[in-house]
Write a protein that binds this DNA or RNA. Structure first.
Lengths: 329, 329
DNA sequence: CGGGGCACTGTTAACGCAAACATCGCGGGC
DNA sequence: GCCCGCGATGTTTGCGTTAACAGTGCCCCG
């Protein structure tokens, strides 16, 4: 900056004014300064600016396994929403959802230049183990943190009930469940809602089969389910596992949806192009991302206390061709 | 910091020393300072630190459509690799791959606190339209920038040749191509290599059908391909489109691989669980991410000039059940 | 023709931190 | 017993920027 000032024959302050497009600089002077900036390749140092201003224009985001469907789509939505508000996003991927790793990530990020923090699926962390720096605005995409931090979550239970209800209405006597891993909150919520929906409808509550979200685990579970002639309808906790399940059913010679109906969860792009196209509970990740950013920035900018806020984002059952009435007899 | 110093009864410098774990502080003093830090909820201000040190410990990353397979997996790998080196990643999603939007993203990011920049698939941008700030280390995941910026790219051509070669070896007389969008470099590279491989093998060079990477576009293209009895083998430019294509084939009553063989590209998780499991060209996104970070940090830390570096990451043909010899006759 | 105001530009200080240097007190060597 | 050296801590200074205030020259008004 000093060099630019010298080259343009003005003071550093004037360079600063030009850099910030202050109107109180004569046109001629401004162009001279701009020329000097271009010649020297000058860019304002953001660290110094941030130091002066006291904020960074950046939000931190912590997630586990960024490349997964929900995560990557949430990341995309958060990045877009943050950009629209003039903020950039700094990302940290945690090694595991264990409290220790989450805390380490929080520590790492809170040492970065961030104005606020978004935690996606803190899974096994609890409010107490989070060890957040005081005064740092936070939003969590996990409803267990209500009362501690503002939270945004999809209507997991509603989605599960919709899936079960749909299958029951088609005439299935009960609905099996291909559940997600036990350390995942959404997985548990879907599983509990499935069980509750069955009980309320007076249908037989059968044991759940468990996968780990991966398509391969869905296939493995599918080989078991396919061998059981009692199984006529399965609600899978995500679309990946549903795809693996469908493959296992095909291999076992059980027609989908002729012999077995399948419902997924998430609404990944591929769900519509599977064979058969998958009936699924579609989540609005874009909305989740936008709500996360909104709740965070309201704290950052206006200092609102939103600890009790709990935004529930609705889900939608999309009926495609993987569900039908059970086989006669 | 001043408050902490006052509370602990030491100077600010000693607080600084404790914050950085300098060993020249007496244990007793250090604990007193730490207690004060905890009580006051003190966290070192990174902007001030960055100002002092002259670097940020952050790299910027620009990508288009973060939630797509290649992008999200590259992002994950980059984030992990950067974290391992003590850097965090700031993400910007561009609205479109048009030069104007890329430049805008560059401008936005270069005003952030970053030590270097990773540009993923600059697609339609060219070295000249990039308008990068001088002295900012950059790495691009696109081989067209060789000579201008260090680049990392998967072996698109090699992958396409492997796919075509595999199908030809099975006995197919020619291989059709379900291409990606024309404004995508990888799509063009795959398409050109497909055509070249066909020509070299003396096979008939048929026109390519074009999609936009989406599974739905693959389905649309698939309805056309399925109607043509001449088609016995299709190389799809990505797995999503391959999935849509396979569905269209199923619907048209053409068996996969009995009547038509299909090869995809990318190696998404679901490819192994489609029906039938998809033969595909697997990319090593993890390696791409690691190489990007490596090349960037070598510039950042050691000031190396890597402009001519062009890392080609090998791909691997994974043979599964969607390919077989053509139907007899 | 002198003073007030305005447009423009310069000077000073502070943001929070850490390197460099200064100081202090103590134990040991002579 | 005096001074050196070392460990532990304090003081000064500057990183690049910008807010606040301080000029400086010019035009216009009375």
């Amino acid at each position: 900056m000093t060099d630019v000032a010298a080259l343009a024959g003005v003071s550093a302050q004037t360079v600063s004014r030009v850099a910030r497009d202050e109107p109180t600089v004569r046109h001629e002077t401004a162009s001279r300064v701009r020329a000097a900036m271009a010649q020297l390749g000058y860019t304002p140092n953001r660290a110094a600016r941030a130091l002066r201003y006291g904020h960074y224009g950046t939000v931190g985001m912590i997630a586990h396994r960024l490349a997964r469907t929900g995560e990557s789509r949430t990341v995309e939505a958060v990045v877009e929403a943050a950009q629209a508000e003039g903020y950039t996003v700094t990302l940290v991927d945690i090694a595991s959802p264990a409290p220790h790793d989450v805390s380490a990530a929080v520590a790492r990020l809170s040492h970065q230049d961030i104005d606020g923090l978004i935690i996606v699926r803190a899974e096994s962390a609890t409010p107490d183990t989070l060890a957040l720096p005081p005064h740092l605005p936070v939003v969590v995409s996990d409803s267990r943190f209500v009362g501690h931090h503002p939270a945004v979550a999809a209507d997991q239970a509603g989605g599960a009930r919709a899936a079960v209800g749909h299958l029951l209405e088609l005439g299935h006597r009960t609905v099996h469940h291909l559940a997600g891993p036990q350390d995942s909150t959404p997985a548990r919520q879907r599983e509990e809602a499935w069980r509750a929906a069955l009980a309320e409808a007076g249908a037989a509550v059968v044991p759940a089969v468990r996968g780990d979200w991966s398509a391969a685990s869905g296939y493995d579970a599918g080989t078991v389910l396919a061998a059981d002639p009692e199984v006529t309808a399965v609600f899978a906790a995500n679309d990946q596992m549903a795809a693996g399940l469908v493959r296992a059913l095909h291999e076992a010679g059980r027609a989908v949806p002729g012999d077995v109906s399948v419902v997924g969860f998430d609404g990944i792009e591929l769900s519509a192009q599977l064979w058969p196209p998958l009936t699924t509970v579609e989540q609005d990740f874009g909305e989740i991302g936008r709500r996360l950013v909104d709740l965070l920035l309201r704290q950052v900018r206006d200092g609102e206390n939103l600890a009790d806020t709990h935004a529930v984002v609705p889900v939608r059952l999309v009926e495609r061709e993987s569900t039908a009435p059970p086989p006669a007899g």
